[in-house]
């Protein structure tokens, strides 16, 4: 990752990610509506929602929550910029964890019973997916002998061929990361399974708008992780990558609509089991393949 590629990535990701993320969120709502037999809102509804949130009168429980959320957003953008600049995968993971921590602190700072419960659940989510995320980077290193994500564009064949089970593990925790049911414990966009509004209970107006935008950024970053497994050193690779990413996103929306939220115990147990099984078998496979 050079300084120049970082600047390009920062500007590119900073501008394009929310646009694409917003469109994806719109598609998500359309798809969800169709799956439920409704027509659904316009494609740009997520943008209309955020625009409305921005102009609302500010109502803050304390003066720190908005600050923490803002920090969280900035760090999420930074993590994405590091990733798309081809930077160190562990660096991306750690900056993203810091971003999540600020989001959790934002909720805790309100000392609202509902927000605090949401924060607690968000911590459980982090605990569920963090081992997999670290092991993805480790498996990446075992396969390619580097942590720099940029090298995938110089491969002969996509990473998914050597890390198929790790990819499955990624899909599993992606459901948590994208806040999709059955693992949308800390907050959900389905009104029917929500305890008030989880971790965002006390967030309103611009603060909530920042949370929504952050979700768009994060969605693109995580789909980028999926893409990491699908590309190789050829322009032709972009076609299967885009098809693959779209398929994964559709799969996530499909899962979202077909499962009810589980308890955190099940989430933690199953993520850890899947992580252990997928990563250990895949690393054995790597050694077997030489």
């Amino acid at each position: 990752m050079t300084g120049l590629s970082f600047v390009f990535s920062l500007v590119g990701f900073g501008v394009l990610a929310p646009v694409i993320g917003c469109l994806l969120a719109g598609i998500d709502r359309k798809l969800t509506a169709r799956l439920q037999g409704r027509v659904g809102p316009p494609l740009l509804q997520p943008w209309y929602d955020v625009r409305k949130l921005i102009v609302k009168q500010s109502a803050q429980v304390n003066s720190y929550q908005a600050f923490y959320v803002c920090m969280s957003l900035v760090l999420a953008v930074l993590a994405g910029a590091f990733f798309f600049a081809g930077g160190n995968f562990l660096l991306v993971v750690f900056v993203l964890t810091l971003s999540t921590l600020f989001f959790i602190i934002a909720a805790y700072s309100t000392r609202s019973p509902y927000a605090e419960l949401g924060a607690e659940r968000e911590i459980a989510q982090v605990m569920s997916y963090e081992p997999m995320v670290i092991l993805i980077s480790i498996a990446f290193y075992f396969a390619l002998r580097t942590f720099d994500t940029g090298v995938v564009f110089s491969l002969d064949r996509p990473l998914i061929l050597s890390l198929p089970l790790v990819f499955v593990g990624l899909l599993f925790i992606l459901t948590i990361k994208l806040r999709k049911s059955p693992f949308d414990l800390s907050y959900s966009h389905h009104a029917h399974q929500e305890l008030v509004k989880g971790i965002t209970t006390e967030m309103s107006g611009r603060t909530l708008a920042m949370v929504e935008v952050m979700h768009w950024y994060e969605s693109i970053l995580f789909l980028g992780w999926v893409g990491l497994f699908l590309v190789w050193g050829s322009w032709f690779a972009l076609i299967p990558a885009i098809i693959g990413i779209s398929a994964v996103y559709f799969l996530e929306v499909f899962i979202d609509n077909n499962f009810a939220r589980v308890k955190w115990q099940s989430m933690l147990k199953w993520s850890w089991v899947v992580t252990l099984v997928c990563c250990s078998l895949n690393i054995v496979l790597l050694y077997w393949l030489g």
Partner: peptide, 21 residues
């Protein structure tokens, strides 16, 4: 990998309590 996840949990929840207003 697994130990670090637990590390995150016990620090984050304590940090949250201390920073509650």
């Amino acid at each position: 990998a697994f130990g670090s996840a637990a590390t995150f949990m016990f620090w984050a929840k304590w940090l949250g309590k201390v920073l509650a207003i």
